[in-house]
Each structure stands twice: as structure tokens, then as C-alpha cells.
Design a protein around this nucleic acid. Structure first.
Lengths: 221, 221, 221, 221
DNA sequence: AATGAATGAGCTTTCATTCAT
DNA sequence: TATGAATGAAAGCTCATTCAT
């Protein structure tokens, strides 16, 4: 995690650095992400980076933390306290929030995804933390739905949570270009993603909802 | 693609090499996968590798091809010609085949997955080929199901196919350890995966099926 | 061209490096000149060279530039502004200057010569620049001589310039050892070259002069 | 020098090999000329080359020998036995023969030239042999000219011979492209060299002749 | 006689990190 | 605090040569 020195940096300088670091780690493996490239593009001295972070690993950890925090922001906007709200409405809102995170911060989201597939030297627990947390969140919702009789009792909450998060995770690469290459990330035009994303989102969610609901699924819509 | 020299290698030597190469590329990005490591572990001279493959990229391509062929083997075992077979039975069989591929050849499957997320120097078309092909396959099935009236007409075949493949793709990392690190792959005990996988598989498939079926979903089971 | 880092090097260290690099590129083709050899002999880390120059090509370019500058120094000493000076006196002075360059900086001169014969990755224009420039210079002189009536009107200025430069270029290898191998360059004893060079120089220049002059050639001397 | 095995090779196979080897050594330094490239292009086994020649050095030596023999062929065509022939006519014929060698066998000529500048591991004596021999030949002619009173007595025969050979050696690169790169050699169109070469040749020879003659030089032509 | 697989040293270049200034 | 020069290990790849077949 970054030093005091890093936190005291002028906002602009710090932000520029973060942006460039995110760009590097979102387009490269942990191992092939290049500290040299980052400092070169950021226009700072190599030694400086090592005054902000203890090493490459530390920087990576920080970016993962950033990703987790950003994701949390999106989820925090959803109000789940209303006890009368239908469980599927909640699910929809949550999924929409997560999808928006992925669409609006694709590089950060990519860093998170890479961490799961990648070979970063981070302790597994940390890397899995975010993924597990999100699943736990959905699991809780599903269980609540089962208790309320809105979700069929035979549905396994763990599995349902897995399915939802898996679908969300894959949805962004699928929508963008079926492939998350550097160029794709760069050229992604958020604007025109909207409608496609919305359509696909509705379909995916509908299938999952119908698959879990206690009601005859195809009536709706 | 490998040279004649490689194909003429003693079976044992060639297999050992392939195994080690698969291990390297399944635990590392294309960029960070190390040719030097491979030859060191395989106990062959560096120059020898370049008599088997033109370069690192060629080796990678070969492994991807291996993965595609292995996957095709699993799918080829499914007989889809029986016109009376219920569409969901077909889907189940296909999914089971793919999951078995992932569980029994997790490293090969991982290489394929990496190619999609990663920054391999392969032409996008080739990399996407496999992913798209599999999706097209499922899309065809879904459309057939719609024509037969077994799958609800409002279901978008593309999206359904995406959901199925996404779930399958993520299922293996989820079942193994939530994280596919080198150590994880090594310690994987196939035996105890069986029951867990079977259960999760049933659940996931059920949700998806119910989500798409024209019948009231929860009657079954 | 070298970085600031290189220019800021302690004089002694930089000079030692330059000398060794010149030695390597004067005794080897661009392709077979070895960066590894240079850093080994210079006693610096391999990585350091790449903080001084972007790559091997850049180092080569720098050495060619050094050669050009050194050559220019020798030629700059010649004052050609005196309009009354006989054209052959001018030619003699120029040739003498160039020969001195080759004799006193044979390795640098060799690097230049290699660039013309060799397969350096430099753009042809750049490589030919120096050779052409020198010829143009002589061509101008010859034309002036023709206008003044000192050089026979039938002499082609281009060809005459070529002949002069060719003779000069070959004169050094001829004088040193008929062969410019590493050992030869090392063992070159400047002292005893002087008289031989002077004699050969006089003879060559005489023949060329007489061959071009409007006067009966053999009267002089 | 090549083995019996090489000499017994089918003509076509041997000729193809020689051609390709000449091509490689004419476009590369001794060190960077690649045995691997030669065998690959010639379509023969690597081991075969080592049954024809003891090593790379031996192959190089053979090509140099070929060059020397080819050159000798051109010179052998000149009949210098006629005692009444003017010395300058002889010189012209010889020079023309050598120039033709360079123009018609530029790659072979290039190999010879490279040997002088290059760092081949050949004994200096051998490499210099050809150059010295040619010069000795011209030296003899010049001395005969002096004895006959056709060449001015003050002309040093060694130097004159050097000047002639230097001019000839440089003439080909000068005429072709001022630079003897691989592409240049390949694209060289012999046909259109003829007239240019003839003109330049005449001029160069004239200057040298006039420079050495006992007669007032500019009368002629 | 011909083959071509095997070899390991060598190449140029990039890397993360240290440390004196 | 910021700097950036120095480092040597490691990367992918080519090389001339050997030798069992």
C-alpha cells in the first residue's frame, strides 16, 4: 500500500500516475506489466516509484484495492433496505450497478479479472476476497428471496450467486469485442455500448430470473 | 505449427515437453511465459526448441490448437442426430462434455481462456474463433429449441448461448479453487472434484434451463 | 545519438568507452560488432550501455558522427579563400588534410569506410552523405580549376573527384599493411608511417595533377 | 579447400551451392555470413556442408580462390606479348578486363574486397595475395613503360600500380550506387551500366595515363 | 555420402531494484 | 523527497559445429 509520500503528492501528479499504472496493469499480466514503462510514461523518476510503493507487487495490490473500492462505490448506491422491494428488482439493480462499473471503468475491472486468472504473487486470499465478497452478497440476496418464497427453494444460493457473477464478469468482454485486447480497451466507445449492453443485460437477467423464480417465468415481459 | 522434427521425437520426450509447455502457458500470460523455463525444465537445449517450433508464438499456437482439438474430442462424443431428443437433454450432454474437458484438462482449458483475456500476439480472429464457434454451436441448439417450442420464443439465442458458455468457462475456476494459480493447478485432486462438480453443474444447468423453457420451470425435479 | 547520461559521464570513463567502441566497430562489420564485447572490455554493465544509447544502431550512428566531425576538423583547417592560390596547391592541401585524418585516426576512418561497403542498417542517404559530400567538395575545386584554365577542359569534374577520393581512401590501408586487420591497426607505428606516407602521397598526387593539368605535366618537379 | 566429395557433386547441385554461398559472403561480413542460411537456401543438409568443407573458414577460402581464378581468367585474355604495343594500350586493356570482371561478377569481386576490409580469420598473406599480385602485375607494366620511355622516369612504379588498382576497385561501387548493399547488388542491371562505365572508365584512365606519360598529356583525345 | 537433431555459447535488449547525490 | 545511473539476471533467438544414423 502506498506511502504517506504518495498520498501527499499533488493531486494532478498522483492522478496521472494512477491512470497510467492502471493502463499498464489492465493491458498486461502482473509479470509483464512494466514498471519502467509506467515511470517513463508518467514522467517521474524510477526511484520515486519506490518511494511511493515498496515494490511492483505493492503497486499492484494498490490498484486492486482501487478496483475493489470503485466497485464498492457502485454497489453502495443501491438501497437494499426497503423490505418490500421484490427480490428480483434488487438483483436487477445490483447487476446493473456492477455492469455499469465494468462499462465505465473497464480498465479497473480488467485488473480485477486478470488477478483471478493471472499469476500475481499476491496471497490467494486477497485476490479471491473481492470475488468471494461479491458472491456472498448475491448469495445473501438469493437466500432472502428463498425465505420470502420469491425464489424457488430448490435453488442453491451459492450456485445462483456464482452464475450471476460469472455472467456479469463475462458480459463486458462479450459486449465489447469478444476480446479484451489493448486496442479494444482504448477504442471502446462508451456511448454506443449503452443500448447493446442494455439489451443483452435484460436477456441475461431474464433467463437467470426465470430460472430461479417460483412463478411461471415466461409470463412476464 | 511444429516441425517434422518435433513429430518424430520419441513419444516420451515429446509428451514431457508438451506437458511442461502446457504447464508454463497455463500459468503465465503469453508474454511472461518463458521459453527458457520450458527448456530448462524439459532438460533440452535452447536451440532444440527452435528446431521444433519457429518461435515462441508458434509454440503458443500449437498449444492452442491442442486445446481446441481436445475440446473437439469431448464434443464429438455427443450424438445430436436423434431428432426426438429433447433440446434440454442435448444441452445437458453438451455442457457436461465441456465441463469434463475443463475438469480433466484444466491446463489446456486455461490456455484457451487466457488467449481471450490475454494479450497474445495471435490474430484476433483466430483467438476468437474457438469462443465464437462454441457459442455458435449453442446458439444453433437454442434456435432449434425455439422452433420446436421447447424454448420460449422471447429468448435471444445469442444471449442464451453466451450465458451457457460463460457459466461453463467460469465453472472450473470456481470449482477448483476460485483461483487458478500454479500451485492450485498442481494440487488439484481430480477425484474429489467429481461430486462437487456434478452438483454445481446440475444447479447451474437447471437455472438456465428453467430460465429458457416454455414450461413452468419449477415443476420438474 | 547518446543520451544526456552519456554526456555527463566522467571524461575518463566516457573516453575509455568511446575508444573501445571505436575499436570494435573499426574491426567488425555492423552486424558482427558485439555490444557484449564492448561492455565487457569497458567494464560496465550491459544495461548501462542502453542508458547511453537507445540501441546498437544508435551507438553506430554516434561513432559515424564522430568520424564525420573529426574529418571535418581536419578539413576546416584548410583555408581555401585565397583566390590567387593555384588549384593544385589547394588540392594538395586538402588531400594532405584527409590523409592526415586517416593516418591519425585510422579506426574512425575505417568505421566510415565500412559503412559504405558494409550492410549497416543506416539509411543509404546518410551513409552516402559523407562520401558524396567529400566528392562534391573536390568536384567544386576541379570545376574552379577548369574555369581558371588550370585544369584541362576535357577533364570530367565528377570523375576527377572520384579518382582523388578513391586514391585517398585506399591509401591508408595500402600504407599501413595492405590490410586493416585488428592486429594491424594495433601495431601501427605512427612514426614510421610519416615518411612513407609523404612519399606515396606526393607520387599519387603528382600523377593525378599531371593527368589533369593544362600544362605539360612532366616539366614540373 | 573443398573435399573430393564436393568436387564429385552433380554439376547443378554444386553450382547452386556455390552461387548461394557467393551471395551470402558477398552481402555479409565473414563473421555474419551464415552457414545456416546457406544450407537452408541451398536445400542441403547442414552436415553435408561439413563434408564438403572443413569449416566456415574453409568455405570462405574457397570462394576467395574462386574470385581470384575468375579474375585471372579475365586478365589471361589480354595478350601482352606483342613487344610493339604501346604501354598505355596495354594498360587500358588490362584495366578494361578488370573492370569487366567487377561488373560481370560483382559478387565475387565484392568477396575479394570484403576480405581486405574484413576481419576474416584468414592468414593475412593469403588475403593480400590477390591484391598484391594484381599490383605487381601493373607495376611490371609501368616499369616496362619507363624502360621504353613511354612513362616518365620520375613515376614510382609501386605508387602508379597502387593508383590504378585503387581506382579500379572503387570504380564499381561508385558506378553502381555509391553503395554496395544487398539490394543494390541484386537490382543491378548490367545492361545500363555499360555506357556509364565506359565513360567513367575512359576518364579515369585518361587522367592516370596523362599523369604518367612522357608526352604532353592533353594533346590526345 | 548424406542427413538433420542436438548442443550451448553467444547475441541484443528489457527488467525491477538499489543507492549515492 | 526526488533523482536517475548502475546493475546483472533474464528474456527470445541464432550460431557453427558434431555425430549417430
Amino acid at each position: 500500500m502506498p506511502t504517506e509520500t504518495f498520498r501527499n503528492l499533488p493531486d494532478e501528479k498522483r492522478q496521472k500516475f494512477i491512470e497510467i499504472a492502471i493502463d499498464e496493469f489492465s493491458t498486461h499480466d502482473y509479470e509483464s506489466a512494466s514498471v519502467s514503462q509506467i515511470v517513463a510514461r508518467a514522467g517521474i523518476a524510477k526511484g520515486s516509484l519506490y518511494q511511493y510503493f515498496t515494490d511492483k507487487r505493492d503497486l499492484h495490490l494498490y490498484l486492486l484495492d482501487l478496483a475493489a473500492k470503485k466497485k464498492a462505490e457502485y454497489m453502495a448506491e443501491i438501497d437494499l433496505t426497503n423490505p418490500d422491494m421484490n427480490i428480483f428488482v434488487m438483483l436487477r439493480m445490483l447487476c446493473r450497478a456492477l455492469l455499469q462499473f465494468q462499462i465505465q471503468s473497464p480498465k479497473l475491472a480488467m485488473i480485477g479479472n486478470r488477478a483471478i486468472y493471472g499469476d500475481s504473487p499476491l496471497p490467494s486470499e486477497i485476490v479471491n476476497q473481492a470475488a468471494i465478497e461479491t458472491r456472498q452478497f448475491f448469495k445473501g440476496l438469493v437466500e432472502k428471496g428463498k425465505n420470502r418464497g420469491e425464489i424457488h427453494s430448490k435453488v442453491d444460493a451459492d450456485t445462483a450467486a456464482f452464475l450471476i457473477t460469472a455472467a456479469l464478469k463475462e458480459l463486458t468482454p462479450y459486449l465489447t469485442n469478444q476480446r479484451q485486447s489493448e486496442a479494444d480497451v482504448k477504442n471502446r466507445v462508451n456511448a454506443d455500448l449503452g443500448p447493446r449492453a442494455a439489451l443483452a443485460f435484460e436477456q441475461v437477467i431474464s433467463i437467470i430470473e426465470n430460472g430461479m423464480s417460483t412463478h411461471s417465468p415466461q409470463k412476464k415481459d
